[in-house]
Design a protein around this nucleic acid. Structure first.
Lengths: 139, 139
DNA sequence: TTCCGTGCAAACAATTTGCAGAATT
DNA sequence: AATTCTGCAAATTGTTTGCACGGAA
């Protein structure tokens, strides 16, 4: 949360309860929720929270680099407060999205840099398959 | 086009001028167009073409595996008739999308497989940076 | 003749925007 | 006190759907 406070001060953005709650929520989960899901979950404790505020806050957090936006092939975006570049696992049966952690994939950026005249700054890597739970269910 | 003809026959789908044109267009370009762009470009020669038909055809082509859908972080999807798994380069200045070809990245699937209990079937890899043209323009 | 596809318009869903009132600095 | 943010509703945009007509098998 210190990151939020100091970065907001620096950019002269206001730390409102809504913004705080949204960022804290994203920091606390690994489920890569959509805006709608964030909204639904926060509404319980923040009954006046509006979906528009969720979207506006997410946009702000993305702009200052505290959140990343991903699209795994659905009709909506998902949000992740883990901004370290890391691969995602997407289950094509239940649509859950997991992280691959503790493994450094950044070498692929360097690998790609050798193959192109682009200046490569970042990458997104998605693996598609079947999660352990769905395998057990025989899906 | 043989792929289209034989696959369509197999699935008892009809090869209409619209479907043929959309697939031929996608096969002929490396620009990863959106549905809207495909529609605009084909309208010149197919004045009765409808955007709904473009969407329906793309859905059909995806289902039989002749086209892949990608989302590079924009508000819409882009379509690619190169269905071999290959990485994409996205310019964060002009939004163009290029391919990385002639390099096999599939080893990352195997690499990821070691790190997870998912059954990994496919992957999507996007590199973000600045394309050569935008570099020249100093963007 | 049957079935499937097209194209129009309407429907839908995700996201953005405008603005008045409210809260933060 | 000044500025920024919230929350509502309306607007916008990308995509899908329903359905009558047309055309291919």
């Amino acid at each position: 949360m210190e990151q939020l406070n100091s970065l907001f001060k620096e950019k002269s953005l206001k730390v409102t309860p809504q913004r705080y709650a949204i960022y804290k929520y994203l920091k606390s989960t690994k489920s890569h929720p959509s805006a709608e899901t964030i909204y639904e979950d926060l509404k319980v404790n923040y009954p006046t929270m509006s979906l528009a505020t969720v979207y506006k806050t997410l946009r702000t957090l993305i702009e200052i680099g505290l959140v990343k936006e991903i699209n795994v092939g659905e009709d909506n975006f998902r949000y992740d407060a883990n901004v370290d570049t890391h691969p995602h696992l997407i289950c094509r049966s239940c649509s859950r999205v997991d992280d691959i952690e503790n493994y450094n994939f950044t070498f692929i950026n360097e690998e790609a840099q050798k193959l192109t005249d682009y200046i490569i700054e970042d990458s997104k890597l998605f693996f598609y398959g079947i999660c352990p739970e769905c395998q057990k269910e025989g899906r």
